[in-house]
Design a protein around this nucleic acid. Structure first.
Length: 507
RNA sequence: GGUCCGUUCGUCUAGGGGUUAGGACACCACCCUUUCACGGUGGAGACACGGGUUCGAUUCCCGUACGGACUACCA
């Protein structure tokens, strides 16, 4: 690669960034870093009607949470700014006009209503796909059909207009996609796309070509939904005279719904109970809240790892990758072509894997808010011990607290199944022996275990006659971590109190 | 409807003209454990279909089917 790699992630701030968008950002980031290149964030806000105020900061915060550091952005201007298309408005018109001068584009005066009517009419005539193109443009109101004077008069009169690309007829447009190979389309199948809107803003098509060119973008890595318009973009590069510096294209496979078919959407998350957004999002109009990976207790590493493997793989058996390992391993060659159904279960598995690598202190900090919510005050070292004991059975930080709740509060109910199956007439008597014997120890897990085994031997009974009973008395549950470590952490006083209480309650 | 893209276990995928088609998640069994989880071992489970090309196709080519994206003065 001769010129230094420059890639951009170019979301439109119309709502929260979808996880598919985050994956696109991730692949752009990985590709840039892999080649010591530059990762750029450009805000594509040419549609002023769909703007959502919070969306831009949401994008920023999402990328930050994921650890995808941006080299150039609206908040970190490089030498190719501005990085927000609305701030670049003044740049676009000249290119549209240049195309008109060169007979590669034209003014179109048809109103939206007229266009709708035309489409409606065509539909009734069994032409479901009416297009403004090389054949239909001759019967529309534009600078090709109107006289020069008429056009000038309309322009002088400030009549609204759009600028459309004059797409040639029957010309082969081809480009090489890094993921899909050669893609060939006949220009007769491309319509005369609006490149400049009535409101004075360019459409995405013009803006992205102009910006990519001006910003010296070398690779356009984006979702497959852009594949159909890629030939149009190639045409635009050609018409603008920039074809020899045109970026390389790579169209990523889509992320599909877990069940059924189709693109993963916001609704699927609500329906199937997993987040589709990196961060929680509240729709200000409806008040509707969509959950976020962050708020659900996912680690950004797990989220990123999952996303990386949706469409890409390293070709080895390694499944766990840190961001920098991903940078090292990433290549567009190993990106697949087919859409990938999202599997929430695998994301949970990744989260569990990452949770287990966290030290107790980190985990403690993560559950601090929950502790506060439940008004639990606890000594640091004791908390670390509890975390150590329970983190193996947790997928999310919040699971730790749930697994360990009996440490903070004595059980108020006792697992019915364990009681009915295991609690016998002589159980209270045996448990009293436990109190006695345990009292002779220093209450360390190892000594407690020795003492417990001694009781079993004296009474000639197996662990199953006393272990589960002690557990249910202490924790109210039929399962959980090591009994003796629980006793050690509970301490003599609490252990004895709970046993006595259970004997009283259960009988 | 049109254009474009795609198709290996349930899911993510590796592989590639001759393989016992490999791994991961999920699932099942067993082992470990007082129990749950973790861990370990093992199991079930896939090349969409039809034609070519070839000594030989899951792999290459062409069709078919199925799926998807796009089809706005949205991105």
């Amino acid at each position: 690669m001769s010129a230094s790699v420059r890639v951009r992630f170019a979301p439109s701030p119309t709502g929260p960034l979808h996880m598919g968008g985050v994956r696109t950002a991730l692949y752009n980031y990985l590709f840039a870093k892999k080649h010591n290149g530059t990762f750029i964030l450009r805000i594509e806000d040419t549609d002023q009607t769909r703007l959502v105020g919070k969306a831009e900061s949401y994008i920023k915060e999402s990328l930050e949470w994921c650890g995808l550091n941006v080299d150039e952005s609206p908040w970190k201007e490089g030498e190719y700014g501005p990085y927000r298309q609305s701030d670049r408005k003044h740049l676009y018109r000249q290119y549209a006009e240049q195309l008109i001068k060169e007979d590669k584009a034209y003014y179109a005066f048809d109103t939206a209503e007229e266009l709708d009517a035309m489409r409606e009419k065509a539909k009734k005539a069994k032409m479901p796909n009416w297009q403004y193109n090389s054949v239909t443009r001759n019967s529309m109101k534009n600078s090709l059909t109107l006289s020069e004077d008429e056009v000038k008069a309309k322009l002088d009169n400030n009549e609204p207009y759009t600028i459309r690309l004059k797409v040639p007829r029957n010309e082969e447009v081809r480009f090489h996609d890094e993921i899909r190979g050669w893609v060939v389309v006949n220009s007769s199948n491309i319509d005369d796309k609006v490149i400049f809107k009535g409101d004075g803003m360019p459409t995405y098509h013009l803006a992205n070509i102009v910006d990519d060119h001006l910003m010296k973008i070398t690779h356009v890595i984006r979702g497959e939904e852009w594949l159909p318009s890629a030939p149009l973009h190639v045409l635009l590069y050609r018409f603008l005279g920039w074809e020899d510096t045109m970026p390389t294209f790579a169209h990523l496979p889509l992320i599909l719904k877990p069940d059924g078919n189709g693109k993963l959407s916001k609704r699927d998350g609500d329906r199937l109970g997993f987040p589709v957004f990196p961060l929680q999002w509240e729709n200000e109009e409806t008040g509707e809240v969509s959950m976020g990976y962050r708020e659900q207790g996912y680690f950004p590493e797990a989220f990123i790892n999952t996303l990386a493997f949706l469409g890409w793989n390293p070709g080895t058996n390694q499944e766990i990758f840190t961001l920098s390992e991903l940078v090292e391993a990433f290549s567009l060659e190993r990106v697949g072509k087919a859409g990938a159904k999202f599997d929430a279960k695998k994301t949970e598995w990744y989260n569990q894997q990452y949770l287990r690598t966290k030290d107790n202190k980190t985990l403690a900090e993560l559950i601090e808010p929950q502790l506060a919510d439940n008004k639990i005050e606890i000594d640091r070292d004791r908390l670390y011990s509890i975390i150590e004991l329970t983190k193996e059975r947790a997928t999310f930080p919040r699971d730790i607290l749930k697994e360990a709740e009996f440490f903070f509060e004595a059980p108020s109910t006792y697992d019915e199944k364990t009681v009915s199956k295991k609690w016998k007439e002589n159980t209270p008597e045996l448990l009293n022996k436990v109190i006695d014997r345990f009292g002779d120890t220093d209450y360390s897990a190892s000594e407690l275990e020795v003492a417990f085994k001694a009781i079993l031997e004296d009474e000639s009974i197996g662990f199953g006659k006393l272990g589960p009973q002690l557990r249910v008395a202490l924790t109210g549950k039929g399962m959980g971590p090591s009994l003796f470590q629980i006793c050690e952490l509970l301490g003599k006083e609490e252990t004895e109190a709970r046993i006595k209480r259970a004997i009283e309650e259960i009988g």
